[in-house]
Computed example of a mutant assay.
Amino acid sequence: MQKIKGLLVSMLLLAGILAGCNEAPAENKGSTKEGTSTSAVNVDATDWPRTFKDALGKEIVIKKKPEKIASLWYFYPEILVALGEPPAASTEKEYLSSLSYLKGKLDSAEELGDKVSPSIEKVLSIQPDFILATEHHEAVYDSLDKIAPVITLKYKDIYEDWQYGLRTVAEIIGKEDEAEKVIDKMMKEITTGREVLKSMEGETVALILSWDGKTFNVLGEGNPVYKIAFDKEKGLGLTPDDTYTGANNEFTTFEGMSTVQADHIFLIGDITKEEKLMNGLKESNVWNAMNAVKKGNVYLMDNSAITGGPLATEYAMQNILTALRK
């Protein structure tokens, strides 16, 4: 009998210890600019309230998971969709909805107009829980702040580092685990792709952007597509055309393109105008004399690649791999 009583007491004590462990709060990772993954850490998405310090140094108390987010800059909807939480409203909705990875994903979102000067009346009408802004919204900040708390993040920080943008927005909406899953998946794909493209060692690549078929820009180190193509650790490790280094280089005349001697060219633009663009280029002696053109190594990529977010990065990576895999 004493043995049975002793066993019961031990079981009750064990149950109490386990219950106490289950009530221990999960650790909040927060955002980071480092590329390391912390997906093994289990973040409790119900860890509310939480305090977020934005780029203006303002501490915003987020009492519960935001349900209605108003997005005022073009990379926010992409990040939110990647996290499974499309915004309730967004600026530039019509343009964003045309991007390959956002088609059908913003159908329920309200249009807020221009990204620099959004419609205050429309923002007011949806009564968002929070407004995601950048430093470009200083002129309308006070008006927006009267509607809902405004969280300001620096444009350059997010545009130049998709992992940082993903983690930071995830912290705001309580989707840290989801962010790490997206990053893990992407980095595995990038690492695999880098190995596949080792067969291209010694061949050079140029990324050229044209919005109108008249002005052409060779993308430089400040562009996210450049990083995914050429970075040796976070990108595909390709070799850039050494004619151009630094930031984007705009050519005022088409003839400026004749100096690009890359073995491969990715021409980035509106692929809905592909036929018109290519017909015009094929008539140019400058274009036809270029190294990549003579080798038949010109590939078109939609401007879906240039927003700088996680989905754009994945889109660019997949296009590059499809074109260059041998």
Results as ranks from 00 to 15, higher is better:
Thr253Trp: 00
Phe251Tyr: 14
Leu277Cys: 04
Tyr226Val: 01
Glu221Ile: 06
Ser258Cys: 04
Ala312Glu: 11
Glu221Leu: 03
Pro240Ile: 08
Pro310Leu: 05
Leu277Arg: 02
Ala247Asp: 11
Val298Leu: 12
Asn279Met: 13
Leu238Gln: 07
Gly246Glu: 08
Asn288Asp: 11
Tyr244Glu: 14
Pro240Arg: 07
Ala292Asp: 07
Ala292Met: 07
Gly296Trp: 09
Lys276Ala: 14
Asn303Glu: 11
Ile228Tyr: 05
Asn297Pro: 01
Thr259Asn: 14
Asn303Lys: 09
Met278Leu: 15
Asp231Met: 01
Thr272Asp: 08
Gly246His: 08
Gly222Asp: 12
Val225Phe: 10
Gly235Leu: 09
Asn248Tyr: 05
Ala292Tyr: 03
Asp231Arg: 04
Val260Thr: 12
Trp287Cys: 13
Gly256Ala: 08
Glu283Cys: 03
Pro224Met: 06
Glu283Pro: 02
Ala292Lys: 08
Met257Asn: 09
Phe216Cys: 10
Ile265Tyr: 05
Gly256Glu: 07
Gly308Ile: 12
Phe216Thr: 10
Asp241Gly: 12
Thr239Tyr: 12
Thr243Leu: 15
Val293Phe: 10
Pro240Tyr: 05
Leu267Phe: 06
Thr307Ala: 13
Lys273Leu: 01
Asn279Ala: 15
Asp231Ile: 00
Ser304Val: 06
Trp287Glu: 11
Glu233Pro: 00
Val298Gly: 02
Val286Gly: 06
Ser258Ala: 15
Asn285Ser: 15
Glu221Ala: 10
Lys227Leu: 02
Thr253Asp: 14
Lys234Thr: 08
Glu233Gly: 00
Lys234Asn: 09
Phe216Met: 10
Gly222Asn: 13
Gly309Arg: 05
Gly308Ser: 13
Glu274Cys: 00
Ile228His: 07
Gly280Ser: 12
Ile265Pro: 06
Thr307Ser: 13
His264Met: 07
Lys294Asn: 10
Leu236Tyr: 02
Lys276Arg: 04
Gly256Cys: 08
Ser258Arg: 13
Asp242Val: 14
Glu255Ile: 06
Glu283Arg: 12
Ser304Ala: 14
Gly308Ala: 14
Lys232Gln: 09
Lys273Asp: 01
Val218Leu: 11
Leu300Arg: 01
Asp242Phe: 14
Lys273Arg: 00
Leu219Pro: 00
Leu281His: 08
Met257Pro: 01
Thr252Ile: 10
Asn217Ile: 14
Ala312Trp: 01
Glu275Val: 08
Thr272Cys: 01
Phe216Glu: 09
Leu267Pro: 00
Ser284Arg: 15
Asp270Lys: 01
Phe251Glu: 11
Tyr244Cys: 07
Lys294Trp: 13
Thr307Phe: 02
Asn303Tyr: 11
Glu275Ala: 10
Lys227Ile: 00
Asn279Phe: 08
Pro224Arg: 02
Asn288Met: 14
Asp302Tyr: 03
Glu255Asn: 14
Leu300Ile: 07
Val298Glu: 02
Thr243Trp: 13
Ser258Phe: 00
